[in-house]
């Protein structure tokens, strides 16, 4: 089958790739573009390990086709930090030990950033429901929720 040419922006830089029409964005990112930070835990939209932002909207990249990214802007976990400066969500995940194996972490970082971008001061319940699509089998979510709360406080300028 002929490959499709796709022109997009990935993590702030224009990018182009060729992909099969049926190839998912996750497979394109990992196997074609070489960005392996987004993970595959299920390939069916149930675990959130593959979470990316597509034009600012949180999506499971395993449920999006590579060709659908045409003309859009993609943010993956690799683009969350600014150079060597970690995003507050990343910093707080580290400080709170909000990861054990770290496999869910890329998806959770992207999802948490998306939450705080749209809702700078979420309640615990709002955080838990927003992250309900991101499975973590290691942590029991406690430290993840606290890390997101704390990152929110930093982004609001209340603490460091």
């Amino acid at each position: 089958m002929a490959k499709s040419y796709v022109s997009t922006t990935i993590n702030g830089e224009s990018a182009e790739y060729l992909c099969e029409p049926q190839q998912t964005l996750l497979d394109v990112l990992r196997d074609v573009v070489g960005l392996t930070g987004s993970k595959e835990g299920c390939a069916s939209g149930d675990c959130g390990a593959c979470s990316v932002l597509l034009d600012g909207t949180l999506v499971c990249s395993c449920l999006v086709l590579g060709v659908e990214a045409e003309g859009k802007s993609i943010l993956t976990v690799e683009g969350v930090a600014q150079g060597d400066k970690l995003h507050p969500v990343q910093q707080k995940f580290l400080e709170h030990a909000a990861l054990q194996c770290g496999f869910c972490t890329p998806g959770l970082i992207v999802a948490s950033k998306a939450l705080l971008d749209s809702n700078p001061n979420p309640t615990e319940t709002e955080i838990r429901y927003w992250l309900a699509g991101n499975l973590c089998r290691c942590t029991g979510y406690d430290k993840i929720v606290r890390a997101v709360q704390d990152a929110g406080a930093v982004m609001r300028g209340e603490t460091v």
């Binding site: 990992r30 392996t36 690799e78 969350v80 970690l86 400080e95 030990a97 990861l99 770290g102 970082i109």
Partner: peptide, 21 residues
């Protein structure tokens, strides 16, 4: 004490290499 883990930055930035990577 509670220091930051040595493999932490790799794991929050997507750099850590798992088997499928």
């Amino acid at each position: 004490t509670r220091p930051i883990r040595p493999d932490g930055v790799d794991k929050v930035t997507g750099r850590a290499i798992y088997a499928a990577d």
